[in-house]
Design a binder for these strands. Structure first.
Lengths: 207, 207, 207, 207
DNA sequence: TCATAATCGAGACGGTACGTCGCGTCTTGTG
DNA sequence: CACAAGACGCGACGTACCGTCTCGATTATGA
C-alpha cells in the first residue's frame, strides 16, 4: 500500500466531500455522522475518504479549517485594545452559542483527547490562526504601551481564552457578552503596565 | 421489565466492574474501552452493567469518582495568597505530569463532553470541591484585602484554572512549575487592588 | 474468539436464514447473492451467519442439503434394475434442466474447486446420499444376479454419474431423457454378467 | 470510445500479462487472483487488460490455452484398443496427480462454469482436440470390430472421461493407474460387441 | 519529418460486498 | 430474582476488487 500521490488528487471530490461533511454536520450532528453517509452525499467512494483522511474526525477538521481559513484571520486594530479584545471574545462566545458549531467543537475536542496526531492538527490548523491573530494584536498593544513589555504573550493569549474554554467545558456559568466583557476587563488589568509586583519583577528581569 | 431492586444488588460485582474499568482504562486507554471487555475482565455479564449503569460513560464516571473523590479538599491559608495559589497550581501541574492521573483527567473530560447529564455530575462531584476550595481561599483573601472586592470569585477561579486546562488540552506549551508560578503572578496582578481602571470601576460599582 | 456454543443456537434464526437463502437463490441466482442480503431477508444479523457458517457457499450448501435431506434417499427396487436406473438418471437430468438449480450447482462446484473443506462437505452431505442410494440399489442387483459380483460398486456409481456430469460441465451435448436412457443401456452392458474378458477376469480374481 | 486497433497492440505487454497470470495462478491460486495483481506483476496498466480482454476469466483462459494447446493430439493405434485406452487414461491420471497441471485444470474448469461463452472456447480449443483424438481411435476400433457399430462415439468418450472427472472433482477415491486400468476394462465391456440386450438393440437398430 | 493519434503504465475514482466490531437487548441456565 | 455467559439484531467500520476514468510519457505511423 504505497502512499497516494497528492498531485493526482481529484479536487472536485475533495470539495464535494468537505461540503457534504458540513451539510451533514448541520443536519445530523457529529455523533450521527458516518463516513459512509459523507461518501454517499458527496457522490464519492468511501475509499476516497480513507485514502486522503484518517477517518471521520480528520474530515471534519478539514471541513472546519476550510471554512475558517476563508474568513481571514487578523484582528482589527482600532487603537483601543480593550475594545478589540471585546470584539473577538464576543465573537467566540457567539460561536459557542451556535448549537451545531458547539457540538462539533465538543466532538472534535473528544477526538483530540484520544488521538494525539489529531490534537496537533486541530491546534495548528484550526486554533493557531485565531490565537496568533490575538497574539499579534497584543504585540501591537505592547508596542503602544497598553501591555507591559515583560508579559509572555503566549501566556497572555491563554489567559484570555483559557477561562472561556473552561467555562464552556464545565458549563460552570453562562457564556454571554457580559461575561466576555468582564473577562476582558480582568485580563486587561493583568496585562496593563504600572500595577504592582508582578510587573516590577518582570520589568526588572527584562532589563 | 420491572425496575431492578437495588437491595438485591451484588456488591461484589459492582466492585469488580469498577476495578476492571480502572484497570482497562490504564492499560488500553479510553478509546479501546468496551462494555464487553469490562464485563469479561470483571467476570460479570454485560447485562449486569446495563442493569445498574446507563452505559460505558456512566461506569467510567463511577469508577473515577471512586478514586478521586476521597482527596481532602481545603486549601491551606498561610496568609500569603500568592504562595497558597502557587501551591495549588503546582500540584495541579504535577497531576497533569503524572501519566495515570493525566489519563484519568482525559477520560473524565471526555465524559464531560459526551453527556450533558454526566457533565453536571463530573463538575459537581469531582471538580466543584477543588474549585470551591480555591474560591474559599480567594474569599478569605478578599476579606484580607489581597483581592479587590468587586471581583467575581467564580470568574477568578476560572482565570486561574482556565489557562492551565487550555495549555493541557491544546499542548501549546510545557506544564512546569515555572509556568504555574508565572500564571499565579499574572492572576494576582489581575485580582489585586489599586491598579487601574477595571479596579476603579469595580470598586466604584461595589461601594 | 472462542468457538460458539451450538447448544445456544437459535433455531428460528437458522431456519429463517436457510429459507431466505433459498428464496434469494431462486430470485437472483447465486452470483448476485450476498451475505448481507440473506441476513436482511432473514431478519438476522450478518454476524449470526458468520458465526455458524463459513460464508455464502457454506450457507447455500446447508440450504440445499436441508431440502434434499427432506426428500428421503432410497431408490425404489422394482426388480428391474434398468428401469430403476432410468428413473434416477431421468430425475438427475431434470434437475440439471432447472435453471436455478443448475446455476446453483454450477456455483457450488466452483467453490468446491477453490475450497477443499467445502468440497468434502458437498460430497458427503449433498451428493453422498444420492450416490449411496444408487450404490445400494446396485448391490441389490448384484445379489439378484443383474450385476457381476466382481464389479466395484463405487466405480459403477461413477460410471453412471460421471458421464452425466461431464456432459453438463462441458456442455458437449443435450441432457435429455433419451440421453439418460442411452447412458443407462451402456452402463447396464458394462455391469451385466457373462459378457467377456473383463467379467471373466473379475470373477476369477474374486474367487 | 472507438474500438481498439489490434495492429497497434503491444505484444510485449500481452506476453507479460499472460506470463504474470500463469505465475500468479501457480503461486496464489485462482481464488486470490485479481486483475490488479496481474497488471502490477506484469508491469502493465489495468486498462491494458480491460482493453484487450473481457476480464479476469478471459485472461486466464488465454494464459492457459497458451500453454496447454500446443500438445500433440493424436492417439497411437497399436491395434490393441484396450492398451491404447489404458495409455491415455494413465496419462490423464498422471496429469491430475501433478499439482501444477491439476491447478490449471481446476482453473479451467472454473472458467467453464463461470461463463457460457468461455465454456464453449474451453471446450472447443482445449478439450475437443483430446476428446476427438480418443473419438478417432474409437472409430478405428469400430472399423476393426472392437466396438459395436451402434455405439454413439461421443457418448463413449464421455463414458471414458466422465468417471475420471467425477472422481477428481468429488475426490471420492484415489486416482491411480490401477483405477485407470479398471475403468478401461469396464468401458471396454460396455463397448464390445456380442454381450447382451443393449448391444442387440443397438445393432438391430443400426442395421 | 514530424505532428498526431493511439496505446501504454500508473493509479485515483465511484461503487459494492466483504468480514469484523461494538452496542444494547434477549435468552438460558445456576445460585 | 440477580447473576454469568453469550447469542442475537443492528449498523458502522475500514478493506479489497471491480471496471472506468484521467493523466502524462511513449511509440509508430501516414500527412
Amino acid at each position: 500500500m504505497p502512499a497516494p500521490d497528492p498531485a493526482r488528487r481529484n479536487e472536485r471530490s475533495r470539495r464535494a466531500i468537505l461540503d457534504a461533511t458540513r451539510a451533514l454536520l448541520a443536519e445530523t450532528g457529529y455523533a450521527d455522522l458516518t463516513v459512509g453517509a459523507i461518501a454517499a452525499r458527496a457522490g464519492a467512494g468511501k475509499q476516497t475518504i480513507y485514502r486522503w483522511w484518517g477517518g471521520k474526525s480528520a474530515v471534519v477538521l478539514d471541513a472546519l479549517v476550510d471554512t475558517v481559513a476563508a474568513e481571514g484571520m487578523t484582528l482589527p486594530d482600532s487603537g483601543d485594545l480593550r475594545a478589540d479584545l471585546r470584539l473577538v471574545l464576543r465573537a467566540t462566545v457567539a460561536e459557542f452559542a451556535d448549537p451545531v458549531l458547539s457540538a462539533t467543537t465538543r466532538a472534535l475536542t473528544i477526538e483530540t483527547l484520544i488521538d494525539d496526531e489529531l490534537a496537533v492538527q486541530v491546534r495548528d490548523r484550526l486554533l493557531r490562526p485565531q490565537l496568533d491573530a490575538v497574539k499579534d494584536r497584543l504585540r501591537a498593544g505592547q508596542r503602544a504601551g497598553d501591555v507591559r513589555t515583560g508579559v509572555d504573550l503566549d501566556q497572555a493569549v491563554e489567559l484570555i481564552f483559557g477561562p472561556l474554554y473552561h467555562r464552556w467545558l464545565l458549563r460552570t456559568g453562562p457564556l454571554t457578552e457580559e461575561y466576555a466583557d468582564g473577562l476582558v476587563d480582568l485580563v486587561m488589568t493583568a496585562l496593563r503596565r504600572g500595577n504592582g509586583r508582578a510587573a516590577d519583577d518582570d520589568e526588572r528581569r527584562g532589563s
